[in-house]
Design a protein around this nucleic acid. Structure first.
Length: 190
DNA sequence: AGCACGATCTGA
DNA sequence: CAGATCGTGCTA
């Protein structure tokens, strides 16, 4: 399946966040290809978005977001979790899409082995996802368009009727207009 | 140099 | 609902 090229990420972040639903996240680890279909995303829209890490300007942590699109912005939070974001829009416009959940497609046994507890849970939740895919800070700044280590592919077309938009999670500190913005996108299960 | 807190998850 | 657990950025 074709890799999502740089142009895919180089446009309006809300559009990218929607278009990523149904996309396939691919991550080869130790010769095994882990993959999953994206079913939940959140858009973080640049300096004007008070929920976005870039809101208060560039720092060493969020520098990747200020760079060119199609790179991975991975950061550490709550003292124990990594979160995966995909940088969008032009260089200098610090926007990104947070990947919150995927439906595991391949390498499911390896993902579960990496998770602490057993059981056939879905890989939902942005930190669990990173754990299952073995994603950590070493991939921060990785170029997603080069087709190694970590990349995305076309997979399934999700019709707009199957997409729900809701407020984003865990951003109570943001201004009301951003807290209430419907910038989280979820594929309805059926 | 110190400190408060977070785009979370788990288990009680 | 509390606890785990620590990098980051703000204040001094």
């Amino acid at each position: 399946m074709p890799i999502l090229h740089r142009e895919f990420y180089d446009r309006d972040t809300l559009q990218v966040a929607r278009a990523l639903l149904g996309g396939k996240l691919v991550r080869p680890v130790n010769g095994v290809e882990l993959s999953g279909m994206i079913v939940e995303t959140e858009a973080y829209c640049g300096k004007s978005d008070s929920a976005c890490h870039a809101h208060r300007g560039e720092t060493p942590r969020n520098a990747v977001m200020f760079g060119p699109p199609a790179h991975a912005y991975i950061y550490f939070t709550y003292g124990m979790h990594y979160l995966l974001n995909l940088v969008t829009e032009k260089e200098g416009n610090p926007c990104a899409v947070l990947i919150r959940a995927v439906l595991p497609l391949a390498g499911i046994a390896e993902m579960e082995a990496r998770r602490k507890k057993k059981g056939a849970e879905l890989t939902n939740g942005p930190a669990k996802l990173c754990q299952a895919f073995g994603i950590d800070k070493s991939l921060n700044g990785w170029d997603l368009a080069c087709g190694q280590e970590l990349w995305l592919e076309d997979y399934e077309i999700i019709p707009p009727k199957r997409i729900t938009a809701t407020p984003r999670i865990g951003i109570d500190y943001a201004k009301k207009e951003h807290r209430e913005a419907l910038w989280r996108f979820v594929v309805k299960s059926r």
